[in-house]
Amino acid sequence: MKYAFFPGCSLDATAWDFGRSTRATCRALGIELVDIPDWVCCGSTPAHASSASLAVALPVLNLQKAEAMGLPVMTACASCYARLRTANQKVRNEAEERQRTERITGKPYNGQVEIHHVLDVLVNHFGVEQVRARVARPLEGLRVACYYGCLLTRPPEIVAFDNPEHPTCMDDLVTAMGAEPVAWPFATECCGASLSMTRSSVVGRLGHKLLSMARRAGADCIAVACPLCQMNLDLRQSDAIKSHGDLPQTPVLYITQLLGLALGLSNKELGIGAQSVSASSLLADRRPATVASTGGNP
């Protein structure tokens, strides 16, 4: 299994731990990732809220590079994923959009590159049973609220690898890791996304709602697959608690970090320690006496 990897801006900066854990986990499972050379920003929300043509052209620059590599694309950031898929669909289905995009990028592109999210790759390409078979250090007793957020499953015409209202792919992975996914009603509620910068009070309110519901459902931690979800629930957690009421500290980990732990990789290899709300005591409590032989341990 081999993919053209689109890291996106966050995975080299605010979400470097998502980048490191995605690469480490894929490597451990034998999923080969080749970075798209000289990839560029997908434009994210500022592009689609400012210029309809730029919102398609920026993702297409990357898809043209991937097409030259002859590989399907894999990305980890939920926002990059949605932007790449949206642009691809527009170019594929709308002749005018395609012509405009080709004029802007100066190169042909007909929307034929396949684009997958890392969860899609893990669950549907690699397979949950295969993941289960590779678990070296089951995360027994760990109760996880799987938080999908907005763009992994919406809109279904664009992303389409899980149910938009009741997704289960992360829950299936968490079960395969030996941990316990909790049932909770806010798995696809929005965290406020890029309002983080412009209206942090909204993000505080939404974050508190999510964190308190995850706790009520019995979760010890939240698993995410999006850099903005992670930042809004983790970095802004203390503000949310200050403004909206006390809650126990809740670590917010990338699903690839949890999976990496279950595969026997070390905290260092997975960027565990990069969170504002430390996960170390939670994970230390759960660490079984028989630490897996692969990957060592800090």
């Binding site: 929300t45 689609h48 907005c150 919406r154 809109p155 938009p164 929005c190 996304a193 309002l195």
Partner: peptide
């Protein structure tokens, strides 16, 4: 926030 719940 462009969360697409409405669109969906």
């Amino acid at each position: 926030a462009s969360c697409e719940a409405c669109t969906t």
